[in-house]
Design a protein around this nucleic acid. Structure first.
Length: 857
RNA sequence: GCUCGGGUGGCGGAAUAGGUAGACGCGCAGGACUUAAAAUCCUGUUUUCAGUAAUGAAAGUACGGGUUCGAUUCCCGUCCCGAGCACCA
């Protein structure tokens, strides 16, 4: 025992002890309720952690410890998202194998995390780059490959079922989510070559080969995901990105668009993240309508959300990237259209975004507006996107800004069809008139209808006349799943001599050694150079690897049974631990990791592997900790604060407590080196509740009601704060309790011991030390969370502030049992009250029990 | 441009089923202990005005209105900051 609070010694001692006794190891225990608290696992970068990283880890650790003290069996694991670009870039620079550098970084992270005293069950650590782990990432990919999405049952189903349907009924009456195919009979199916059959099945597999326009980054020699491209340049490095056609694996996430949208309503996530996902999925309801090309039998199919404005559709616009563009254009105009299309294709994303002036050319064709019967010209312009809707729009310049700008540029007809409900439009229009509450005019049978009524009436008419049907559109695109990189999961795929992909049954398919990690530059991965690996008796291997998000889309399941070599996790473990109850991490993964994890979870739910279809019940996004200068913490600004240094100088408990004290968990806030002194002093004060000078001073006396009141109000406050994750106010509650007990010179074991338990989740080391000094032999982290007697918190009297006309003028103490009449009499005879009433008559007397008294004159 | 957050002392931030604004901490000022320093402890600290002082008065939660006995909290408008989306028909 030491009379001094020497945190270095204490923290090392208990960390060693906890490790030796396996204090945080958990296992299935059906006698206890489970609780699963998870941190987003980190990418083990070479620069290690700065003080911003542990913010969320500290918060989740507090909750994990709190739940344990409340009798829960808590799963609280940690691992590493270990595949990825930085390790590979480093390999390219240094020639070291990424597995080696990654392992070094993992060791470093582990040390740093241990210094801060987290209660992880390290036995459950996972690393996505470990073959024992990624064999199941490959297995899940194989399952995607072997399934299709049945729109009727809204569920994934085995591809064999679809094949059977084709064998029996051809393409009649099947409800598969996927690409377009030409109808065929059962007979025709049986006569198709394996390659033809593959090409049809490929349209429906949930993992499929897709010819897509990808974001090609020449400098990095690879394809990037949409979210890795910001304003036309790569997120990492800022290299230019161009669009390029490429064959690569994709996952059919759009099959799950509706369920991903609906599921959001069941989640305790921030509105901001839910909104970002809703926007990303981008569901919009409208109609597909066919416009007949004048003088032909051809039609142009458009998608619109505003069929109520169709009487104002005065021209049409076709996207320049459409494959069969020549069909939408007259012969003599084709050279001009083609020239325009080529120019548009080569225009970079940056250009497009920077320049919104309208360009375009006339196709030489006219279509008939089915509602007005009038011929309208068809144009090509790059303001229409090929991959949204049908790639063709009906333009309503009077009521759409973009169409209006285009019509003005090329002097096209503008016909207003919506006007204010009470009033008239100022004509001619200076800008597009966009109103949610307008009514139709100039619109035949739609005249006088509101937007909502007109939309349904117009769609009914379209459907009845056979011109089209109601249609739902999504902004969400299929998820590109191939990277031309070395450091990722290899695909369990070989292509036979016909080029048909076949699954490799034996997993894992391990990464081979390569001589160079550099991209080949021709768009292929470094793996393609390893010919001994690529060529197998069964055919050529797929040489792309999976993207970073593959391994992170299911790791939360693996923690439940991380060493299982037969299955991704045993049904027993999955059934026991189930969903993540609380997930803590940054909000930057809103449309990546969080969406993909939900997608994979729903797929595995469909297959019956798990019994829930959302991975993370409650999500909390911790804010960023900025540098002292208010800028983002980074080497570049030289403002990085290292948690190891802070722990060495002040101790881990002080770091943990201070990070919580900085402000609300979800806010961004700057680090302040002076501020930590306050928390450090607090621990000194707290320690001195137990010691007087060199002398152990805890007494066994019975506590007084005043002391119990301090304790009980603290129990109440801390319990409520942890439940609502309001940790900053918990810290101040500990300070208040310490100040108040100090003022009362209270050193009673009964009080201090309970206070230790309350503080144990926040400051696990000092509380463990003092707990043992109080004579306990078990760990404080296995104690029981205290309850309080609310009787002690009830006040018998209250010192009322007395307001006269809303201004506080006096204070009078009353027993809470005093009747209102007695209070009123006492207040009105009070000297100060009489003075401020200035002789005016009483108008109203307001008494809010236990709160305030207001005298209105 | 659209959507969602948010504007409270010198600073980080408390307090909103409407009820004493500024808890707790930092910083600052003064004091105690000490030969001295560190550490520790005590006092003060929203602003302005009056007073030697105790104290008293007025204003005050981005700005302007409204509802109410009473508004940081609810409603309307304006400005500013942050985040997300962005030619998605």
């Amino acid at each position: 025992m030491s009379a001094q609070y020497s945190f270095t010694e204490i923290e090392k001692k208990w960390q060693r002890q906890w490790e030796n006794t396996q204090l945080y190891a958990v296992d299935i225990d059906t006698n206890k309720p489970k609780y699963y608290v998870l941190d987003m696992f980190p990418y083990p970068s070479g620069s290690g952690l700065h003080v911003g990283h542990p913010l969320g880890y500290i918060a989740s650790d507090i909750v994990a410890r709190y739940k344990r003290l409340n009798g829960y069996n808590v799963l609280h694991p940690m691992g590493y998202d270990a595949f990825g670009l930085p390790a590979e870039q480093y390999a390219i620079q240094t020639g070291q194998h990424p597995a080696v550098t990654t392992e070094q970084n993992v060791q470093r992270f582990r040390e740093q995390l241990n210094i801060m005293g987290f209660s992880y069950d390290w036995d459950r650590q996972v690393k996505t780059c470990d073959p024992n782990y990624y064999q199941f990432t490959q297995q899940i990919f194989a399952l995607f490959f072997e399934h299709w999405y049945n729109k009727q049952t809204q569920k994934a189903a085995p591809i064999a079922q679809l094949i059977e349907h084709f064998q029996l009924h051809g393409s009649e009456n099947f409800q598969a989510h996927g690409g377009k195919i030409n109808p065929f009979t059962a007979q025709e199916w049986s006569e198709m070559s394996p390659l033809q059959q593959h090409e049809i099945l490929n349209q429906f597999r949930l993992a499929f080969v897709d010819e897509t326009t990808v974001n090609w980054c020449e400098a990095m020699g690879t394809v990037l995901a949409n979210e890795e491209v910001v304003n036309g340049v790569s997120e990492r490095g800022g290299y230019p990105v161009v669009r390029k056609k490429m064959r690569q694996w994709s996952l059919r996430i759009t099959a799950y668009a509706d369920r991903l949208l609906d599921g959001l309503n069941t989640l305790q996530w921030s509105d901001a993240i839910k909104e970002i996902q809703r926007n990303w999925i981008g569901k919009s309801q409208g109609a597909e309508i066919d416009f007949v090309v004048r003088g032909t039998l051809k039609t142009l199919k458009v998608f619109t959300t505003r069929p109520d404005t169709i009487f104002g559709a005065t021209f049409m616009v076709v996207a320049p990237e459409l494959e069969n563009l020549s069909e939408y254009c007259s012969e003599d105009q084709w050279p001009i259209v083609q020239e325009y299309a080529n120019k548009a294709k080569n225009r970079s994303e940056i250009d497009r975004m920077a320049d919104t002036t309208k360009t375009g050319v006339f196709t030489g064709m006219e279509a008939i507006n089915p509602f007005t019967g009038e011929p309208i010209p068809v144009w090509v312009s790059d303001y229409v996107l090929a991959n949204y809707g049908t790639g063709i729009i009906m333009a309503v310049p009077a009521h759409d800004e973009r169409d209006f700008a285009f019509a003005k540029t090329f002097d096209l007809n503008i016909v207003p069809v919506i006007k204010p409900a009470n009033g008239e439009l100022d004509l001619p229009l200076e800008q597009a008139y966009i109103a949610k509450d307008g009514i139709c005019f100039n619109s035949g049978f739609l005249d006088g209808l509101s937007m909502k009524e007109a939309i349904s009436t117009a769609i009914a008419k379209v459907e009845k006349a056979g011109w089209g049907q109601a249609k739902v559109n999504y902004r969400l695109r299929e998820a590109g799943f191939g990277r031309q990189r070395y450091w990722g999961e290899p695909f369990p795929i070989v292509y036979n001599e016909e080029g048909i992909p076949q699954l490799i049954q034996e997993l894992p398919v391990e990464l081979p050694q390569v001589d160079s990690y550099k991209p080949t530059g021709n768009g292929e991965s470094p793996l393609s150079a390893v010919t001994t690996w690529v060529n197998t008796p069964q055919g050529k291997r797929e040489t792309d690897t999976m993207p970073g998000w593959a391994g992170s889309s299911w790791y939360f399941l693996r923690y439940t049974d991380p060493k299982n070599n037969e299955q991704l996790a045993s049904p027993e473990a999955l059934n026991y631990w189930q969903q993540v109850d609380l997930y803590v991490g940054g909000s930057e993964h809103a449309t990546g990791h969080l969406l993909y994890s939900r997608f994979w979870t729903k797929f595995l739910f469909d297959l019956g592997i798990i019994s829930w279809d959302e991975p993370f019940k409650r999500l909390v996004n911790q804010g960023m900790i900025m540098g002292e200068d208010g800028q983002k913490m980074s080497k570049r600004w030289g403002n990085v604060v290292n948690p190891d240094d802070v722990c060495a100088q002040y101790g881990a408990d002080t770091l943990r407590m201070y990070e919580m004290f900085l402000g609300p968990l979800t806010d961004s806030k700057p680090w302040n080196t002076h501020g930590i002194e306050g928390v450090s002093r607090f621990f000194g004060k707290f320690w001195r509740l137990f010691y007087e000078g060199e002398q152990w001073a805890v007494s066994q006396e019975a506590p007084t009601p005043a002391e119990l009141k301090i304790l009980y109000k603290t129990i109440k406050k801390i319990t409520e704060d942890i439940e609502s994750m309001s940790f900053n106010t918990s810290v101040s509650a500990f300070m208040v309790a310490t100040n108040e007990l100090g003022a009362l010179k209270c050193r009673k074991q009964e009080i201090l011991e309970t206070l230790l338990i309350l503080m144990a989740p926040f400051a696990p080391h000092i509380t463990e030390e003092l707990w043992h000094q109080l004579g306990h032999s078990d760990s404080i982290h296995t104690a029981n969370w205290p309850t309080y007697d609310s009787q002690y918190l009830v006040e018998s009297s209250f010192n009322y502030p007395i307001s006269i006309n809303g201004k506080t003028r006096a204070q009078i103490e009353f027993e809470l049992s005093t009747t209102e009449a007695d209070i009123q009499a006492a207040v009105l005879s009070n000297e100060l009250v009489i003075k401020w009433m200035e002789g005016k008559p009483l108008k109203k007397f307001i008494l809010v029990k236990g709160r305030i008294i207001n005298v209105v004159v």
